[in-house]
């Protein structure tokens, strides 16, 4: 891992720390209050705030996880070139962004 990847991984970790806490608090609130799926969607649909919150969360998680996967591949797969590890981890990050964006769109749009 070079300094650029290090800054991105630590930066996204710092960004996600408060996001995870808010996410957990929302889960506890939703379950303790007995909110139904319809109740939740009623609050999230059309909400720019929740769209931004989870959109940023998805991007940060995808960047953070793909850099981590790249490190694992470089250290644990013998003979794998760093370029191949970068390609695989970038593809993995793209899949995370696509899946995450689909989930965010499902609760915010429509």
């Amino acid at each position: 891992m070079n300094v650029r990847l290090y800054v991105w991984q630590r930066g996204t970790a710092a960004l996600m720390a408060p996001l995870v806490l808010v996410h957990l608090a929302v889960i506890f609130y939703a379950t303790r209050q007995g909110l139904t799926a319809a109740d939740i969607l009623g609050r999230t649909r059309g909400s720019i705030t929740w769209g931004l919150f989870y959109g940023v969360f998805v991007l940060a998680a995808a960047i953070h996880a793909s850099i981590g996967l790249r490190n694992i591949l470089v250290e644990w797969v013998p003979g794998l070139r760093s370029r191949a590890a970068a390609l695989i981890s970038t593809a993995f990050g793209a899949v995370l962004v696509a899946l995450g964006a689909r989930a965010v769109a499902a609760v915010v749009l429509g």
């Binding site: 070079n2 300094v3 650029r4 990847l5 290090y6 800054v7 630590r10």
Partner: peptide
């Protein structure tokens, strides 16, 4: 060194 290099990178003094 991690701290020093990260700060130097953010200041544009070194490259990745």
């Amino acid at each position: 060194l991690k701290r020093l290099t990260a700060l130097a990178y953010l200041r544009g003094e070194i490259e990745a």
